[in-house]
Amino acid sequence: HNLTITQGKLFFHYNPKLCLSEIHKMEEVSGTKGRQERNDIALKTNGDQASCENELLKFSYIRTSFDKILLRWEPYWPPDFRDLLGFMLFYKEAPYQNVTEFDGQDACGSNSWTVVDIDPPLRSNDPKSQNHPGWLMRGLKPWTQYAIFVKTLVTFSDERRTYGAKSDIIYVQTDATNPSVPLDPISVSNSSSQIILKWKPPSDPNGNITHYLVFWERQAEDSELFELDYCLKGLKLPSRTWSPPFESEDSQKHNQSEYEDSAGECCSCPKTDSQILKELEESSFRKTFEDYLHNVVFVPRKTSSGTGAEDPRPSRKRRSLGDVGNVTVAVPTVAAFPNTSSTSVPTSPEEHRPFEKVVNKESLVISGLRHFTGYRIELQACNQDTPEERCSVAAYVSARTMPEAKADDIVGPVTHEIFENNVVHLMWQEPKEPNGLIVLYEVSYRRYGDEELHLCVSRKHFALERGCRLRGLSPGNYSVRIRATSLAGNGSWTEPTYFYVTDYLDVPSNIA
């Protein structure tokens, strides 16, 4: 807008934040220059609390790290170098490059900038070799853009010569660093050979998330399962459950009422301010606690030095998902009996873990797994792929695949051998790939016309006998059925096997 004052003059007093240069501009645009008398524009009460600059400061050096910015700028000295009290560095987070010096300023003089007072450097006698002032900004957020400017702080001049310097606002972004852990990993099994893994992005990506790394490792069953005799009275049979499938998407929606109208769909109840505040506090606490764990609990591995020492970490090797089922080394339970199943799973520490690289999504279907087997899954978020990966501390989750139908069934015939004193040795093959492992066998036998009897055969007993022995049988026709019990439950009964026990007292003698 054009402003013209045809008559009258300007009068400025007691404006401590208004620089004289701005008042002189007002004289020019209003056409009143030359009308004012000496005392109409006070030299001592206008701009006496402001830094009124008329020179431009330029930054000469900028260096960044993930949490620091090192700045240096060209030296500046007023005509009387004693008038320079120091520099004021202003900075704040700036997602967009549209910041002005006066953003967030209120009537009390406060604003949204963080201000650092910096002492002037030592003055050199040689004007050509003056030290460049600077400042190291610490405690910054990774991968965050900051708006920065600097200006001088000078003393009051009796001659009211307006001098000083100020830089333009520059924008500097800190470097990326390792992201925080992925949030809320959930693993479920939808079949006997697959596990579905879902997660949420890290709360602090500290860069642009480029991919996720998912490692999985087959877990050995508890050692007590191999040692305890679950045929003993009072000892509860062990059981394991597989990871249940995901709930429906509708039930997972946030901010939804727990109660549904019987007449149909209901609208979600909005969260109160107290609920939102509580969630923010919980989120802040979780982030602080995660940072504490990362800094205190997890110790970084030592990389190899120039002395030739090897990095103890196993090298990563990509495998196809079809090879995942046989990740671990199978060892027989008892070496003397080769027909026992290889369900003991000690994992070799030198073995390469299978892994998958996930790009542009937060889910993965891990296939080719062994049925009813526990897996430990390790999830890392990465925001750099080359020249070397920059990934987060791992988040861990466990899951067990679903049982395989008929995996616990005894394959092959049940054979028998009759000894003296009416002892019958029953023999059968253990299931080759049971659900988890076989903890015991149930032997059901009966003599024709009598009630059915049951015998429990422990895992250890089966390994020693290759089956079991029935003792003290009365003469007669017998039928026997056997079924295995694994961590997933009972298998199917075998087809009945028949044998006849004679009275050993009636056996004919070869003595003449």
Rank of each mutant, 00 (worst) to 15 (best):
D204W: 15
S268V: 11
G489P: 02
P431Y: 02
A399I: 10
G449D: 11
S320R: 13
T502F: 04
D503L: 05
E224M: 15
V358F: 04
S251Y: 06
E433K: 15
F372N: 07
T401N: 01
F215A: 15
D291P: 07
V334T: 10
Y396H: 14
W493A: 00
G306F: 12
S305D: 08
A407I: 02
F285D: 07
T373V: 12
L464K: 11
S458F: 03
C231Q: 02
R240T: 13
L237T: 07
A488Y: 15
L464T: 11
V334I: 15
N435F: 00
D311G: 11
M427R: 10
Y375C: 01
L237H: 02
S444T: 11
D408R: 00
L453E: 04
L369W: 01
D291H: 11
S305H: 03
G374R: 05
R318C: 09
H461P: 03
P434N: 03
A335K: 11
D229G: 12
Y212S: 03
R466L: 08
M427S: 12
V443E: 00
I276Q: 15
N360Q: 08
T241W: 03
H425E: 13
A395C: 09
L453M: 09
Y500I: 08
V324Q: 13
N255L: 03
C266T: 08
E465I: 08
E351V: 09
H425I: 15
R483F: 01
T347F: 06
L379W: 03
C231M: 02
S274V: 07
A381V: 05
I209Y: 02
C382I: 01
S492T: 08
L237A: 10
A399P: 06
V359M: 14
E351Q: 04
F298P: 04
V297M: 09
H454M: 15
H461T: 09
P431N: 03
R240Q: 04
N421A: 09
S305V: 12
V214N: 01
K460S: 12
E281I: 15
P314E: 14
F372H: 12
Y230S: 06
S268Q: 14
I438S: 03
Q219F: 13
H371K: 03
R459Q: 12
K233L: 14
D291M: 14
G374M: 06
I410Q: 03
V457S: 02
E290P: 05
E227Y: 05
L379E: 00
P354F: 08
H461D: 14
G306E: 09
E265I: 07
P508L: 07
P346L: 12
Y259W: 08
P244H: 13
L280I: 13
V324L: 09
L379T: 04
S492W: 00
A484L: 02
E442F: 12
H425S: 13
P354R: 11
F298Q: 15
D222L: 11
L487F: 10
A405R: 12
V414R: 01
D311N: 12
F298R: 13
C231N: 03
L277T: 04
F246V: 06
N326V: 04
E224A: 10
V324E: 03
A395N: 07
S251K: 14
I482G: 00
G207A: 02
E389I: 06
W428F: 04
R483E: 01
T241L: 04
C468T: 02
C266K: 12
S479Q: 06
C231S: 03
S348L: 12
H416A: 05
L470K: 00
D323P: 08
D222F: 14
H254W: 14
G467L: 03
K271S: 06
A381Y: 03
R318F: 14
D385C: 12
F462H: 13
P349S: 12
I276N: 13
T333M: 13
P244S: 13
I377M: 09
N360M: 10
E404R: 05
E495K: 10
V439D: 03
Y448M: 14
N383G: 03
E217G: 12
K432Q: 07
P312S: 12
S458R: 07
K406Q: 13
K302E: 14
P434E: 02
A405K: 14
L225H: 05
Y230P: 06
W242I: 05
V297P: 06
V358R: 07
S243E: 04
S492F: 11
R319F: 07
A263T: 07
G325W: 14
L237W: 14
M427T: 14
D261T: 07
V507I: 12
S348W: 08
H461G: 10
H254K: 12
E389Y: 12
W242K: 05
T415G: 05
M427L: 07
K357Q: 04
R446L: 12
T497N: 07
Y375W: 01
S223Q: 10
G308L: 09
T347E: 12
Q429C: 15
L277H: 12
N383Y: 04
T241V: 15
L440C: 14
V327F: 07
F499L: 11
V414F: 03
P300C: 09
V331I: 15
H416D: 01
S320M: 06
K302A: 04
I366T: 01
A336F: 10
